[in-house]
Structure formats: C-alpha cells, structure tokens
C-alpha cells in the first residue's frame, strides 16, 4: 500500500478530469454549514474541482482553495471561469498538513473528504492543528472524513473504536483502476483526533457514511 502524499497527489493529477466530472454538486452538509454563516476570508482545504469553494464564494468576500494536485486545481480554475466567480477565488497548490495560509486569517473553512488521504495519524492531527492555526478567533470550519459506517465497508461498523487503512480504486472510463490510499475513520476515533488537535469539537455528526464535525480553533476559544 503506497500511502505517500506524493503518490496520492500523482493519482489525482492522473484522474483529475474524470474525477472532477463526477463531482458536480456540493454536499448538502456543506451547504447547511454555510447557510447562516459569513466571513471575509473562506478556505477550502482539499478543494478538488472547487465545488465547495464555489459555495464559500457566496458566504465570503474572497476564497482560497488549496489542493496538492495541480491537475485538480486546473479543473477548479476552469469551473470558476465558466461559472464567473473567478474574481472572488484563488487556487493554490499546497499540503494540508503544512498550510501556506496566514495565522488567524480564515473566517470560514471546509476541510471535507481530504483528511482521510493523509498517510498516518501524526500527519492527520498536524493538518487539524494547521486548520486551528489559520482560523480566526471567531472562525468556524466543517471537517469530514470517510467513516466505518459507510456501506462500502461491510466488515466495519460505526461502533468500532478505531478505523483502518485501505486502498480504494478509482475506475477510469476505459476500465483502468487507480488505487487511492484512505484511512477510514471510526466516528469515535475521528472525534479523538479532532479533540487531540488545536481544534475544539463543537458539533459532531454522521451523515451519508461520513463523520463530520463543526470545529473552532482551540487556543482562541474563550
């Protein structure tokens, strides 16, 4: 199992066009999170084709999307131009565990379906620390990861104490499969990793086979 971030980045560079074409619509959980929130700066970590950066544009004056895959960022740029929100958004290539974003600068962030691609617990918690660092004192973020409750994982359950590492194939239109590394979280482990980072768990929930939580920055919460 190749769990390196370089490998995961290369995989998404390779499947970017097809992957992006299957990621048309924002998740309802992200829409709900943003529905009654607003801010000056929005951040989407692991932005992929930018479908959630697009939602952030409605809530924030400007938005930064970060992804490790340049191929995905190019699809995000195309989407923003086609849909005429490119003036409010900027896309940057970066690593979730070492964000190139200023401390205390972000009012609203989404970090969905990305955490599970980081190779080990240390990196995953470090990425959550980074999210805490960039959030402003009043800032809030929505974090999600694939969960053991998902139908795909028959041998696992939502009640498991810890999750597991696996690879999940992406199937290209020609039938070729490309393996992607995942750490599938149990909901209990997800909350432990969030609580063990520089984030405060505000509202954990499960939906559609994913664990979620609304979080704030721990060191800035009064």
């Amino acid at each position: 199992m190749d769990r390196s971030r370089e490998r995961t980045r290369d995989v998404y560079d390779r499947i970017a066009a097809h992957f992006s074409s299957t990621r048309e619509y924002p998740w309802p959980e992200v829409e709900s999170f943003l529905a009654d929130r607003e801010g000056a700066l929005g951040l989407d970590v692991g932005c992929g084709n930018g479908r959630h950066a697009e939602e952030l544009v409605d809530a924030c004056d400007r938005v930064v999307g970060v992804d490790a895959s340049r191929g995905l960022l190019e699809t995000a740029e195309e989407r923003a131009t086609e849909r005429a929100y490119e003036a409010s958004v900027a896309f940057v290539q970066g690593d979730a565990s070492r964000l190139p974003v200023s401390t205390d600068s972000v009012d609203l962030a989404v970090y969905v379906a990305t955490l599970h691609h980081l190779p080990d617990r240390e990196r995953r918690v470090r990425s959550l620390d980074e999210l805490g660092r960039v959030l402003s004192p009043d800032g809030a973020a929505l974090v999600s990861a694939w969960s053991t409750a998902h139908d795909t994982f028959e041998a696992a359950s939502a009640d498991d104490d810890v999750g597991f590492d696996t690879t999940v194939d992406w199937t290209l239109p020609g039938g070729e499969t490309v393996p992607r590394f995942y750490h599938v979280y149990s909901p209990a482990e997800f909350e432990r990793d969030l609580a063990g980072s520089a984030l405060t768990v505000e509202e954990p929930f499960q939906s559609s086979g994913n664990c979620y939580s609304i979080v704030r920055s721990e060191r800035k919460t009064s």
Binding site: D10, D13, R70, L73, E74, V92, D95
Partner: peptide, 17 residues
C-alpha cells in the same frame, strides 16, 4: 500558469509518473 506551488520542498520535487 497563474497557480502558485506552495507545496513544501519534499513534496514539490517532480517525481516521474
């Protein structure tokens, strides 16, 4: 091409596909 590459140096070095 307008996209800044702010990957840390250990992830930025181009790896042959």
């Amino acid at each position: 091409d307008g996209i800044p590459n702010l990957l840390p140096p250990d992830m930025r070095d181009d790896v042959p596909a």
